[in-house]
């Protein structure tokens, strides 16, 4: 899923301090799972903003909250069609995709981000999410034991590990696993250490961010 983290409320207040009517817009998908931008967090942020306005003596301020099934889908974003233009600003606490799609759809309404979108990751345990994928557009996991050096090696080495791997940990942080140690352990476990011996070709990064904004177009599923 897309993992996001809450922005400090002070930063959000700085965006909306001159607004009088604000909609906090949550999303029921990834940001709900990572507890940064779901219904619960929309309520908490809306309360914090109401408290701010009250403390400032701004009595005519109105903060509403709403959580959509998804903000990355026309269908669900249409649900606020009738009310969007009533607000001075929408604070979207979806990922960066949701913030942008909301802004694109409601062209004349100011939309602010309420979270920092961090990475594609997994829930390791409650309150701990870690990165697994950088969406490079050309998956190589078949050759690396199912562990991704692009997202998990600090130098994204294709022929690692570097000389800084020590006791299975990365040189930049003793708490961070060395991705190449994990890859080698996995290749050993599945009896495919032969894959380690193969020199990895230079990567075509044109399917990554480097190639410009990307799209996936599937004529077979288009209506």
């Amino acid at each position: 899923m897309i993992v996001a983290d809450k922005k400090p409320v002070e930063e959000i207040i700085e965006y909306v301090k001159d607004c009088r009517k604000v909609l906090v817009l949550g999303c029921n998908e990834c940001v709900t799972v990572c507890e940064a931008g779901g219904k619960k967090e929309a309520g908490m942020l809306a309360s914090a903003l109401r408290m701010y306005y009250a403390n400032q003596g701004i009595e005519d301020a109105q903060v509403d909250e709403r959580t959509l099934e998804r903000q990355c889908d026309h269908e669900y974003l249409e649900e606020i069609r009738d009310i969007a233009d009533q607000y001075d600003a929408i604070v979207s606490i979806a990922c960066g995709v949701g913030v942008q799609f909301t802004a694109e759809k409601y062209h004349n309404t100011t939309v602010y981000p309420g979270v920092n979108t961090c990475f594609l990751g997994a829930t390791e345990q409650r309150g701990l999410w870690t990165e697994r994928c950088q969406a490079c557009g050309q998956c190589i996991l078949a050759y690396t034991g199912g562990i991704c050096p692009v997202s998990r090696c600090a130098k994204r080495l294709f022929n690692g590990p570097c000389g800084g791997s020590s006791d299975g940990k990365c040189e930049i942080n003793k708490e961070l696993d060395c991705a190449w140690q994990l890859i080698i352990d996995r290749l050993k476990a599945i009896d495919r250490l032969d894959l380690y011996e193969k020199l990895f070709d230079i990567k075509d990064w044109s399917t990554d961010r480097a190639g410009g904004p990307r799209k996936v177009q599937r004529e077979d599923v288009q209506i």
């Binding site: 080495l157 022929n159 990895f200 230079i202 990064w205």
Partner: peptide, 11 residues
């Protein structure tokens, strides 16, 4: 890290 050290040697 467009290339890694081995890929640079290869280059």
């Amino acid at each position: 890290h467009d290339l890694d050290s081995m890929q640079l040697a290869w280059t």
